[in-house]
């Protein structure tokens, strides 16, 4: 019976797959067509716009093609580089915290015992991840309010003294960093936890008998299982921070000054406040190129087995 089944399968895949040549096409066509129309077509149109002088507030000037002028302007634009630099700084600020808290939480949740409390803590990790990003910004504005915010109450209580968080450049940067750490630490914790549970039970138990050192266990037994997840986190978090808009927009609108002007916020302002669509499109295309590099990297490193 078993043998017969295999035989049928083998001959079928070799000679006749059992479906027509066009069958896959009909199943794929609607989704591919939809993504072409709503994804690729606008991208091409952004590319075209990026080669034009395109300011909506001045339609009389027309929208002439100006070659690479927008790109030259963007690349020599201090503010654009500053916002990219700020985005990079945001990444290196929040990520160590997210990784560190993430691994601590994962180890706490992986440790046997206290089943009920552990299950409760594990499921609570989903709450920050699901919270509407814009609402995270609203909560942030309330928590970090100068006069009646709970952050200042806490700092006063431990004797440090409060500050005008959203009114000062450093304060605002810290405030959005804290909210991002709150929202995305669970993401890192869940990935680390998945890695920890991949360690075969026999190996982990044998290692526990060998050594009582927790760090040795982590370093030599568990770490190899955590690395693929770590790669995924590094790439996905950088893509997500390049995308980060909602929470920061609600909390600070990029201010005060340009203290929290991350790249997506900046492009949005050039496009929809200054209405310089040509310039904004050029910036968006550059952002898109960065994202494509990131996603190629992700695919190369994460889906090795498929390629």
């Amino acid at each position: 019976m078993q043998k017969g089944g295999e035989l049928v399968e083998r001959t079928e895949t070799r000679l006749n797959p059992g479906y027509g040549r066009w069958t896959p096409f009909w199943f794929l066509a609607p989704a591919v067509f939809a993504l072409l129309v709503i994804g690729i077509y606008p991208t091409i149109s952004a590319l075209v716009t990026s080669f034009r002088r395109y300011n909506i507030t001045r339609p009389r000037d027309g929208f002439p093609f100006i070659g690479f002028e927008n790109y030259i302007n963007v690349l020599s634009d201090q503010t654009f580089w500053q916002s990219l630099g700020l985005t990079a700084r945001f990444y290196v600020t929040v990520l160590p915290f997210q990784l560190f808290f993430g691994i601590c939480i994962a180890l706490l949740l992986h440790r046997p015992g206290l089943g009920m409390l552990r299950a409760l803590a594990r499921i609570s990790l989903v709450v920050p991840l699901a919270t509407t990003y814009a609402v995270v910004g609203l909560i942030g504005r309330l928590i970090f309010n100068r006069d009646f915010g709970v952050a200042n109450q806490f700092l006063n209580a431990i004797g440090i003294g409060g500050m005008d968080w959203l009114g000062s450049p450093t304060g605002a940067f810290i405030a959005i960093a804290v909210m991002d750490i709150w929202q995305w630490t669970p993401f890192c914790a869940l990935i680390f936890l998945a890695g920890l549970s991949m360690v075969p039970v026999e190996i982990e138990e044998a290692a526990r008998l060998e050594t009582s050192s927790k760090t040795a266990l982590l370093r030599y037994v568990q770490l190899p299982y955590l690395l693929p997840g770590l790669t995924a986190m590094l790439i996905l978090r950088s893509a997500d921070i390049l995308k980060l808009f909602d929470m920061v927009f609600v909390m600070t609108r990029g201010g005060p000054g340009a203290a929290t002007d991350l790249v997506s916020i900046y492009i949005q302002r050039v496009g929809f406040r200054v209405f310089d669509m040509g310039m904004a499109s050029a910036q968006a295309i550059l952002l898109l190129i960065m994202t494509i590099v990131l996603s190629r990297l992700y695919i190369r490193l994460i889906y090795k087995e498929i390629e």
């Binding site: 993504l35 952004a46 995308k243 949005q268 496009g271 898109l288 994202t291 996603s295 992700y298 695919i299």
Partner: peptide, 14 residues
Amino acid sequence: ISNRMISPIVLALP
């Protein structure tokens, strides 16, 4: 899969 990574601002303008 790549569509997961793209920043909404890229498409929002066009």
